[in-house]
Design a protein around this nucleic acid. Structure first.
Length: 300
DNA sequence: AATTCGCGCAACCGCCTGATC
DNA sequence: CGATCAGGCGGTTGCGCGAAT
């Protein structure tokens, strides 16, 4: 069964938008909201496909879009978020107010990717491309052992992320500036979570897991915020998309943060399997479209 | 001044997923 | 429960423009 085209292509205008079209679209959405994108073009008097209208609105016409060049801070944030989230441009954009996924994707492909390559960092893995530079290489771990446990992997991931991100920051933006009391990076939040009572709770829970708790997902709650850490659910692992699901509406409502680790649980036992021996994939599943302030509130 | 080249960005395409029937 | 639809996402393309030759 072939998928029907999103809209009838014949007779529809394509290519760059004119100012008149922009005005029609903005006018209509201001008055009526976008409603159904499929029916919007007809109602707004546009000879465009609904998809095209949605794209034009979300990437260009939306009033809350910040235009102009990215600041060094924004670039730094993009790099750090990419290290955590990978090519999930929409998720990255959700953490940077006023920037669209398309903009961030373009920034990455045209600037940041090249810049990372030029300083010897693989833009996909965020690890040094040269193995012969141990001083800046990833943290060396002993060969994976079946007995490696959840906690050890987590600690290792944390250290690696910490080292990697500070290395990238210092390479790209010069020596680290002294900590500013009112400015925290997202990495800071990650580390603060780890060292906070949430982290403690998690560590305690994980000890329980070693003793035979069945749930693969460790959970800790504090002040109305729930943090779940553990392997990706099997449902997600088996899906064709290797990346974690995008934030669903329900996830946005409550403050649950998922830390998906690369290690998996055998379905037949509680034994933790090592993932692809060296690489641990760490995913942040941020709870909302707001910035990181929801975390800040918990640690101030 | 004309041509070529490279870059940046807007827009398109195809696939995936969740909702609805 | 499967089929269909609509929206969203990431990858890719192609055009416009400025720099270089």
């Amino acid at each position: 069964m072939g998928r029907a085209p999103c809209c009838e292509k014949t007779g529809l205008k394509r290519g760059p938008w004119t100012q008149e079209e922009d005005e029609l679209l903005v006018e209509y959405i201001k008055k009526n909201g976008h409603g159904s994108w499929r029916s919007l073009p007809k109602l707004a008097g546009l000879l465009r496909c609904g998809k095209s209208c949605r794209l034009r609105w979300t990437n260009y016409l939306r009033p809350d879009i910040k235009r102009g060049p990215f600041s060094p801070e924004e670039e730094k944030l993009v790099i750090q978020l990419h290290a955590i989230l990978g090519n999930r441009w929409a998720a990255i954009a959700a953490q940077i107010p006023g920037r669209t996924d398309n903009e961030i994707k373009n920034l990455w492909n045209t600037h940041l990717r090249k810049r990372l390559l030029s300083i010897g960092i693989d833009p996909q893995t965020h690890e040094p491309t040269s193995v012969s530079s141990p001083s800046v290489g990833p943290i060396k771990r002993p060969p994976a052992s079946p007995s490696t446990r959840h906690m050890a992997q987590w600690e290792s991931a944390r250290l690696e992320a910490e080292a990697r991100l500070s290395m990238e920051s210092s390479l790209l933006f010069g020596p680290l500036t002294p900590p500013q009391p009112n400015k925290r990076t997202n990495t800071d939040y990650f580390l603060r979570i780890w060292h906070s009572e949430v982290g403690n709770s998690f560590r305690n829970i994980s000890k329980g897991e070693k003793l035979g708790c069945s749930s693969p997902m460790s959970q800790a709650s504090v002040s109305g915020m729930t943090i779940e850490m553990g392997p990706k659910p099997e449902a997600e692992l088996s899906s064709s998309n290797p990346e974690p699901e995008p934030e669903s509406k329900s996830k946005l409502e409550h403050k649950t943060i998922h830390f998906y680790t690369g290690f998996t649980h055998s379905s037949s036992s509680n034994e933790v399997e090592d993932s692809s021996d060296t690489e641990l994939q760490l995913f942040f599943d941020f709870p909302g479209q707001n910035d990181m302030s929801f975390l800040e509130a918990h640690f101030n």
